[in-house]
Design a protein around this nucleic acid. Structure first.
Lengths: 234, 234
DNA sequence: CTATTATTGTCTCAATATGTTACAATAATA
DNA sequence: TATTATTGTAACATATTGAGACAATAATAG
């Protein structure tokens, strides 16, 4: 199992990125978290930046490695740079739990700044993959998170705040749904992210008024009632 | 004149910050730019982060060095990490123009990520100071900027975009004014940042309705007409 | 000292946007 | 074929914002 650690010649020191990958299962907003060997702490997926690689490219690469998906909504939202956020003791424990020995002055135990991004993906399309040091990766409900490593909970909470702020302004909610979706599904996404109920008629009027949705001819038949239209993002 | 360059033992490699310091002279929105010896390029003030210093603390230190001011509105808005943004040739020229010799593999000529912040200050209170490598520092109108070094124009433009977005949401416009100001002055700040005229009566009603302003008894007498009230930020 | 001028603070009414209720349409089920 | 639950949209009520009007008044001119 033991693989060589990433080399300092290949990556920039002191710099990492972390990913808050949001998915929506129809009822709850969830994020992907890694589980490490021999630690109870869960962690955000993340990685390092190659010396000859654009920052955005590094993050896209990491997102693809974890989700298998390309062309996903992805946005940088903050860079975390406190001294206290770096915890070489925890890093060492995680690495050694994978049967890898690491010297005390290894670059991965240095102080790190983390440039945080959030991504929005269609929950049903993804088959998440753990990274080299973690035993598994799973979805966790955003408003009932387990204990996270280091400052990762702070990062996740901030991602949700930014998502709330941008939801309407940038019209990004639909990135969490399949390509075709009902108005009700879209409303549920909004309600879940914002944490409040919205009025059906007002929501529908607002969304249709924005001229960003295409209504499709085929209806969606899912219950003992009038079938709703399906929409897609223009 | 020639001073020793900052040492790699003291600072984190590959990491810098840049500052977009906004000021308002009553008519135009301006930012502070440094001028280097022997280069036509102007540059944003910036600096490095000490190995044992919080990111925010480093930026506050830099802001104080340039402006002499503490307790200023300051907010991180983006981290720039393209490969192409780093230009060792330009850095070398600037350093050597100060009579300092630098070896080709010096850490200051490496690739850099820049964590960008913007600050809002009262134009009249500040006496800007150039940094060790620059000959002067001056105010430049944001919508008529000279040619800037590397990606600094992109950084400045993005700062203005973020400022526009946050202006109303975070009610930060008053940070550009003296402690006491007229409603008209506040409106002019908004109009200048947003780049559009606002209706006087609507603006006044909106601002007073937000319950963030304190009206003072003393009036401001500045012309042949009814004197406006002075307000301060609650 | 008084009339003029320009700007301010606030009021009113109009226009627009949003909240709320109502109701016909209809796919699945009984 | 009737019932049920949900949808799409219209209609009306309420709230917010736009736009004009006007009295108040500090400085200036005469």
């Amino acid at each position: 199992m033991a693989q060589p650690l990433p080399g300092i010649k290949e990556y920039l020191p002191h710099l990492a990125y972390d990913l808050v990958i949001f998915g929506f299962n129809g009822k709850q907003l969830k994020i992907l978290l890694l589980e490490y060997q021999n630690t109870d702490y869960k962690a955000l997926p993340g990685g390092f930046i190659r010396r000859e690689e654009d920052l955005d490219a590094a993050v896209k690469r990491g997102l693809k490695e974890r989700t298998g998906l390309d062309h996903i909504f992805l946005e940088q939202f903050y860079t975390f740079g406190n001294l206290q956020r770096s915890r070489p003791d925890i890093m060492k424990k995680i690495i050694e739990a994978n049967g890898i020995s690491i010297s005390g002055n290894h670059w991965m135990l240095d102080r790190f700044m983390s440039i945080a991004y959030y991504a929005l993906i269609n929950f049903d399309e993804v088959n998440p993959q753990p990274d080299a040091l973690s035993k598994s990766i799973n979805w966790y409900t955003i408003d009932d998170l387990p204990t996270l490593m280091m400052d990762h909970k702070e990062i996740a909470i901030k991602a949700l705040e930014v998502l709330k702020l941008n939801l309407d302004k940038k019209l990004i909610g639909m990135n969490l749904l399949p390509q075709k979706f009902t108005m009700k599904a879209l409303q549920t996404v909004y309600e879940t992210i914002l944490g409040e109920k919205l009025r059906r008629t007002t929501f529908q009027r607002k969304m249709l008024g924005k001229d960003i949705l295409v209504r499709h001819e085929k209806l969606f038949t899912g219950g003992a009632h009038k079938a709703p239209f399906l929409y897609s993002f223009k």
